[in-house]
């Protein structure tokens, strides 16, 4: 196995006296797509925030590209190649679509020039081209999610973290968001996706971790987790009939 791009060892995170993550060890290898699934409140968002530097680790280790990143701030990690698309998308609503892309482009030196990079975004998301001079907040939730995911196109990260891309979207837009993630995966993006939408996430991923009350209770190839009806029903409350 190649060296992991991102790895945690016995990571614990707390909100004051409340423990949200206990001893979580995960790893994402280069080019791999990993899903972390779990019910509401399992600690998925907390994990993402700890990985991108928004929350401090209480104990344990986090290594990005082989080096410990404990104590490094989110802007620092973003510049180093981490892209965290947070729950609720994290688009800058009062800025224009174009300004949102510009900031995402400027985060670190890019391979493509700015015009080429935005052309690639607009080719994939024509809606964003139409609305480039409008405030991001004037767009629908789905369009804003596309704008958030477009960050990974305008300046591709070394590690993409996506938190609940389907949250609050219409079924059509959920499908669209997962289509984009499938494209990213096929392009070899190293990616960690967190979802309540367990089946969609596991169908996307190579491997998966199941999080419950802040602990990893199962992990393995995504196909095996997906086939484990008992696990899915007991801990994730998904109905077998939902899948195909």
């Amino acid at each position: 196995m190649t060296a992991p791009v991102l790895e945690t060892r016995s990571l614990s995170v707390a909100y004051g006296p409340i423990r949200a993550l206990s001893g979580v060890s995960i790893r994402i290898a280069e080019g791999e797509t990993v899903a972390v699934v779990g019910a509401n409140g399992a600690g998925k968002t907390t994990l993402m925030k700890a990985l991108s530097g928004l929350l401090p680790a209480q104990s344990g280790e986090i290594a990005f590209q082989g080096r410990s990143i404990k104590g490094r701030g989110p802007h620092d990690l973003a510049r180093a190649g981490m892209l965290h698309v947070p729950e609720g998308r994290g688009t800058l609503g009062t800025l224009t679509v174009e300004e949102n892309l510009r900031i995402a482009y400027d985060v670190r030196p890019a391979r493509l020039g700015y015009d080429e990079a935005t052309a690639a975004v607009f080719a994939r998301f024509p809606r964003l081209a139409d609305r480039r001079r409008q405030r991001a907040s004037s767009m629908s939730g789905g369009e804003q999610q596309m704008l958030a995911l477009a960050r990974a196109i305008v300046n591709p990260p070394a590690m993409l973290l996506v938190d609940e891309p389907s949250l609050g979207l219409s079924p059509l837009m959920v499908k669209e968001a997962f289509n984009v993630l499938h494209e990213f995966r096929d392009r070899g993006t190293t990616m960690l996706v967190v979802e309540q939408n367990v089946r969609s996430a596991l169908r996307l991923a190579d491997r998966g971790y199941v999080l419950r009350q802040g602990e990893v209770i199962a992990s393995g190839p995504a196909a095996e987790l997906l086939a484990d009806d008992q696990l899915l029903n007991r801990y994730l409350g998904t109905r077998t009939k939902e899948g195909a």
Binding site: H75, A78, L92, T94, L95, E99, I103
Partner: peptide, 24 residues
């Protein structure tokens, strides 16, 4: 300016701005 864009980004949301590499 870029500085102004960063200022507006922080005004919008410090957390979201920091995830985009802006040093709040």
């Amino acid at each position: 300016t870029r500085m102004g864009r960063n200022i507006r980004a922080v005004a919008d949301s410090p957390a979201a701005a920091s995830l985009l590499g802006i040093d709040v």
